[in-house]
């Protein structure tokens, strides 16, 4: 057989079979992967707003935002997914905010690539607990080495100051965006 024809045939054949196989696997796995992602988001929303009962996505915001309701139709708050730069890469977090945007209800770090053992402490509860009931007006401040004295202060982790500061500034940026959105009527 002609070498060129054989080369073409073999490569095309392998390509077609691979493509077909991958399409089949993808067909099977795609809904499962989507369901996993959805379950993950849902679990995170209800972890930061434990009193929530149902949620809906708020569209056209430029970031992920969910309005969460309890059993009564009043919105009890918002779950905002926001990301920004950490020490080495992106930090992505979800934060439960009260409906009047005055207080953080809870915080959870979703994704981070901080230094293991140092920066990764931002995911531990002793750090994220500090954000519960934290006032965000005018913005969140951080202190180092001393106990926080004001209602809008948190204590940065020793050895992970940059990561701690990054979390604070991501939150401040996200809340700033929320306020802009509220003032322009985007939350209605």
């Amino acid at each position: 057989m002609n070498k060129v024809v054989q080369m073409l045939l073999v490569l095309t054949g392998i390509g077609i079979i691979s493509g077909g196989l991958l399409a089949t696997v993808d067909n099977w796995s795609d809904p499962l992967i989507l369901a996993n992602k959805k379950a993950e988001t849902e679990a995170a929303i209800f972890r930061v707003l434990p009193e929530g009962n149902s949620y809906e996505s708020v569209q056209n915001t430029g970031f992920e935002l969910y309005r969460v309701r309890a059993k009564n139709p009043e919105a009890i708050g918002y779950a905002i997914v926001y990301e920004g730069n950490g020490f080495q890469g992106k930090i992505r977090l979800i934060c439960g905010l009260s409906a009047d945007l005055e207080k953080i209800l809870a915080l959870e770090i979703l994704e981070q690539v901080e230094t293991p053992g140092l920066g990764t402490k931002i995911t531990e509860s002793f750090f994220t607990e500090q954000f519960k009931q934290l006032e965000v007006k005018p913005k969140i401040e951080w202190v180092k080495g001393v106990e926080p004295s004001k209602p809008n202060e948190i204590q940065a982790i020793t050895g992970a100051t940059i990561s701690s500061k990054a979390v604070v500034s991501i939150l401040n940026n996200g809340i700033e965006q929320m306020r802009k959105l509220r003032d322009s009527g985007g939350l209605k």
Binding site: S18, L21, D26, S29, N36
Partner: peptide, 15 residues
């Protein structure tokens, strides 16, 4: 092809 299959299966079953 095999790597992509492994990747998809892991994403679907062991996220």
């Amino acid at each position: 092809t095999f790597v992509t299959i492994v990747d998809l299966v892991m994403k679907a079953k062991f996220p």
